[in-house]
């Protein structure tokens, strides 16, 4: 456990010194969300219908951007190999790394989401659902992205592969996440999709770190 804590602290420490790098996904996300009202007419009622999709697809892209370099630095400086042969289970280390990644790239998005939701014309009810759906769904996005990053880290020409691998695995989270907000906006119960997001979350938190560990060992072995 202390090992997981050590890696979590280290990720935050590094991020703190590379603030600009970590702010990029957030800025990216903000800009994407901002461009939509400019593209459709700002006062158009269509904006409200698109809001869940805009915010969820934005979260997906931001997660994708951040996760691409998840293992890259550790691979380059040789830290990854030391983690592979450490006594602590590799899955635990990966889970800690992904938790830090979530805190750095996704948590700000979750916190900023009510603002974006209101900005895109959603009412308070759907905005609350939006917040919960992102809170439940973004860890799934990050963990899925982490698994895909582990699959491709050893392959030099895998850069373009990552989105192809990640998108089919991430679609359920986006479908249910967007669906929950849409249901709330239409005055329907968002419970079912939120439960599904919870189910996905449970699966990703427990299984994906192990799969990522296996993939990482394979990629470097």
């Amino acid at each position: 456990m202390s090992a997981a804590g050590a890696i979590f602290r280290r990720e935050l420490q590094i991020a703190l010194r590379r603030r600009a790098e970590w702010a990029q996904p957030l800025v990216f996300y903000g800009i994407v969300a901002l461009l939509f009202p400019l593209g459709i007419a700002p006062e158009s009622p269509a904006l409200k219908t698109f809001a869940p999709a805009i915010i969820w697809v934005g979260a997906l892209l931001a997660a994708l951007l951040g996760v691409e370099r998840l293992f890259r630095a550790d691979l380059d400086d040789g830290s990854l190999e030391q983690m592979l042969i450490a006594e602590v289970p590799l899955a635990l280390l990966i889970a800690a790394k992904l938790a830090a990644q979530w805190l750095l790239t996704a948590a700000p998005l979750v916190i900023a989401s009510p603002l974006l939701g209101y900005g895109l014309g959603l009412e308070t009810g759907p905005v609350i659902v939006l917040f919960w759906s992102l809170l439940l769904g973004t860890p799934t996005l990050i963990f899925t992205g982490g698994f895909a990053a582990a699959l491709t880290v050893g392959a030099p020409r895998a850069g373009l592969m990552l989105p192809i691998l990640v998108l089919p695995l991430m679609t359920p989270a986006v479908i249910f996440g967007g669906g929950a907000v849409r249901a709330a906006a239409a005055g329907l119960s968002p419970e079912a999709p939120l439960y599904f997001l919870g189910a996905l979350l449970a699966l990703s938190l427990t299984l994906l770190p192990m799969a990522a560990a296996g993939a990482l060992r394979n990629a470097l072995g």
Binding site: F147, L151, T152, G154, A155, R157, A158, M161, L165, L169, L207, L208, A211, G214, A215, N218, A219, G221
Partner: peptide
Amino acid sequence: LNQAYSDPRTAARACAWLALV
């Protein structure tokens, strides 16, 4: 994914992980 790795064994085992997930 299979084409992204130059070592066929590594590639195949990465594919196996993806197939399982």
